[in-house]
Design a protein around this nucleic acid. Sequence first.
DNA 1: GTCCTCGTACGATAACCATCGTAGTACGGC
DNA 2: GCCGTACTACGATGGTTATCGTACGAGGAC
Lengths: 117, 117
Amino acid sequence: MTTTTNARVLEHPTRDQIRLEEVLHALADSVRLRIVRDMARESTELSCSYFDLPVTKSTTTHHFRVLRESGVIQQMYRGTAKLNCLRRSDLDALFPGLLDSVLAAADAQDGRVGETG
Amino acid sequence: MTTTTNARVLEHPTRDQIRLEEVLHALADSVRLRIVRDMARESTELSCSYFDLPVTKSTTTHHFRVLRESGVIQQMYRGTAKLNCLRRSDLDALFPGLLDSVLAAADAQDGRVGETG
DNA sequence: GTCCTCGTACGATAACCATCGTAGTACGGC
DNA sequence: GCCGTACTACGATGGTTATCGTACGAGGAC
């Protein structure tokens, strides 16, 4: 079935459906936290292949889906690529300060662990 | 072996050993988030049995251990009871604003979901 | 000493999850 | 139409976790 229907519709939770526990769970994985940090740093739409992750592509797909379904990121297709961006306004509206403090904490922890130099 | 050694010593991570991912994971469970919120509200040492949780005692023990080993709470024995308190100063020093934003987010979500009526 | 309460340890179990490999679909270039 | 790139779907797998029940230990009350 070479369906030409653009079935490439990605399910996202609405703002009201975003749950704190799921967001925390999404951020509690080091691979996903790294994705989120990269996205916050670039602050533009990035394709999945932009990220150089220490896992295979299928695992990458899995992590992006967890992030999307928890409401942390938004994904959209553009040609063969899939663009990702943080749902900053939604997260900031629901959980003021949460994302920023997580990002700052991750940066601070990198400094503590001392992988940067 | 009825060892009378006070082996009732509880392992806690030092401040430097606390890892953001583990803290987020600890907070990403609804039972544990509830415990943390109750502790933050009372802001005093509470025994495990203070909390009216929808799980059995052994599961409660498990959740308290996860919270302790991730560095979120401190536990100490006093007689037959075990007292718990948040490691606020450690968490605030490592992850400024994180705990407060999580607590505020949990309160806001309660308001949204409207279970308080 | 005898009980009671509080919490732990251990084993079991079922669910979840991070990971992979392979096979497949969607889209753009030629 | 054909191929390559980007990503997905599916099945498998091994590890972690949330849950329970039962049996046990530690300390206080009597």
